[in-house]
Design a protein around this nucleic acid. Structure first.
Length: 479
RNA sequence: GUCCCCAUCGUCUAGAGGCCUAGGACUCAGGAUUUUCAUUCCUGCAACCGGGGUUCGAAUCCCCGUGGGGACGCCA
């Protein structure tokens, strides 16, 4: 008996990586790390209609961006491949054969339209909508007739259990009445396997020890348990984690707006913050702390600390957390993260290095990386434009004009304008004009940045440099 | 409709019978620091869905309601 922990994340490539799936991936990744096991990535592309290579590529990219590296899977290989279900057809066919041999699966010639009509009728009567088993025991003649009509069969599992129960790591024992489970399709008429079937075959063959997935899969589980039993296999340990809901308390979906990982990346969220935040939905550290490094997440993870109830995605807390990560990050690294946003905004930045000083003075007020576009504008504008009536008014005041004159004369001949030099100049202006505090600083800030508020002014002036400072002050006087 | 799951501040949560006049975090309000804003720090507002049990004692255990969610596909 191999006791090594193996978890898996099995997305279907039918769109971008969704925030809810990302959370599932995170827990799987964390638990594998926690147990010293392996994290397997498997692509469930059995839906020929909706699966696309582009989606697969984007999901892989998002996973990598989140830092959820997989030990086995596409582009990585491994001893249990292939890792795309579309490349494992033979396996499903073989196991279907095993089931039909044992008469646990049978061909069903019903057409989708026929099934749909019957399902509607059942729903109208208020019954459980499940297959009426009419193809269960077809005679050879009946089969010939269907084949003659050109029908290709799907295969259904013969579900006769009285009840199905299974243990769940977060919920304990769950029991489903057998009559609730109809004869479900395991192989489509086009020869591709259905989710429940492929999932069971692959999880077993890939040696998956723990299946950790969203609790919307709970009602699938009894069907899968039946398949494990039919195939003579031991089911893996199951853990159904609560779902993430939108603000309206419904399953998070596209109509809730921003729900995919790539959108959060574009908006300026850090992967560390997103991973930390998502891991805290339905899970909490024993210490009660919120800011947790990946190392701590991995070390402190415990299924006993996963709550059973669904949680609502609360962007405000993510914003706060992202700000915390921005503030605690090394400046060099922050600048590297900021660079693409500034570059894309059209600012003439050449290297991440030249962004560092700006990052230093503005980081305290940032929640998202993209905030830098707006905040850093003052460093790239040809001239600062007063951004409010208040600013414009202050600039016109007589007291401000005397400050600007004094500032200009103080700046005469200044070549290096570091913080201390600027501080010195301000002190001199204070003596010259008799103005101090806000009355002194606000006009200067407005002249240099066009704004009433902003970070520490000496720092701003240092980055602007003496040339611009002179130019802007003169402009303020002339305006 | 049927089945399954869930239920503590607005939100994320702590709580595994007495440590609970229910703790923390986000948000919000007020204050301190500061040339402004922000950061940081301090203070405050704010919750055990309802009803029955069990028990000396229940947010915690049981039952029934109610509410919410999920599933019921030749989707995953």
């Amino acid at each position: 008996m191999n006791s090594k922990v193996r978890t898996r994340f099995a997305p279907s490539p039918t769109g971008h990586l969704h925030i809810g799936n990302a959370r599932t991936a995170i827990i799987n990744w964390i638990f594998a790390g926690h147990s010293g096991g392996s994290f397997v990535l498997r692509i469930e592309d059995t839906d020929v209609e909706r699966s696309t290579p582009e989606s697969e590529a984007s999901i892989l990219e998002d996973l990598r961006w989140l830092g959820l590296d997989w030990d086995e899977g596409p582009e990585k290989g491994g001893a249990f491949g292939p890792y795309r279900q579309s490349e494992r057809s033979d396996l499903y066919l073989d196991h279907l054969e095993m089931l039909t041999q044992k008469d646990l699966a049978y061909p069903c010639y019903c057409l989708p339209e026929e099934l749909e009509a019957r399902r509607k009728a059942m729903l109208g009567k208020g019954d459980t909508t499940q297959y009426d088993k009419r193809c269960r025991d077809l005679t050879a003649a009946q089969i010939r007739k269907f084949v003659g009509e050109g029908r290709r069969p799907a295969f259904r599992f013969r579900a006769d259990a009285e009840a199905v129960s299974f243990g769940d790591l977060v919920r304990g024992d769950i029991v489903f009445p057998g009559e609730q489970i109809g004869d479900f399709v395991i192989m489509k008429s086009d020869g591709t396997p259905m989710y429940n079937f492929a999932c069971v075959v692959d999880d077993h063959l890939m040696g998956i020890s723990h299946v950790i997935r969203g609790d919307d899969h709970i009602s699938n589980t009894p069907r899968q348990i039946l398949l494990y039993q039919a195939l003579g296999w031991e089911p893996p340990v199951l853990a159904h984690i609560p779902m993430i809901l939108g603000p309206d308390r419904e399953k998070l979906s596209k109509r809730h707006g921003v729900t995919s990982v790539d959108q959060y990346r574009t908006l300026g969220y850090l992967p560390d913050a997103l991973v930390n935040f998502l891991s805290l939905l339905s899970w909490s550290s024993e210490s009660g702390e919120d800011i947790l490094s990946r190392e701590r997440l991995i070390r402190e993870f415990d299924f006993n600390r996963i709550s059973k109830s669904a949680s609502i995605f609360n962007v405000e807390k993510l914003d706060w957390m992202n700000g915390m990560y921005i503030r605690q990050m090394e400046v060099r690294e922050l600048a590297r993260h900021l660079f693409p946003f500034l570059h894309q905004a059209g600012y003439p930045v050449r290297t991440a290095e030249e962004v560092e000083p700006m990052a230093v003075i503005f980081r305290a007020g940032m929640e998202r990386l993209s905030d830098a576009v707006e905040k850093f504008r003052i460093f790239f504008a040809e001239f600062p434009v007063p951004e409010s009536v208040e600013a414009a008014e202050v600039m016109q005041q007589e007291a401000s004009r005397s400050i600007y004159k004094s500032f200009l004369s103080q700046m005469d001949g200044v070549r290096d304008l570091d913080r201390d030099a600027f501080q010195e100049i301000m002190k001199n202006i204070q003596q010259e004009t008799g103005l101090k505090g806000k009355a002194l600083w606000a006009p200067v800030r407005i002249a240099l940045t066009g704004r009433v508020h902003g970070p520490d002014l000496p720092g701003v002036a240092e980055i602007l440099g003496p040339e611009k400072c002179r130019k802007f002050a003169a402009r303020a006087l002339g305006a």
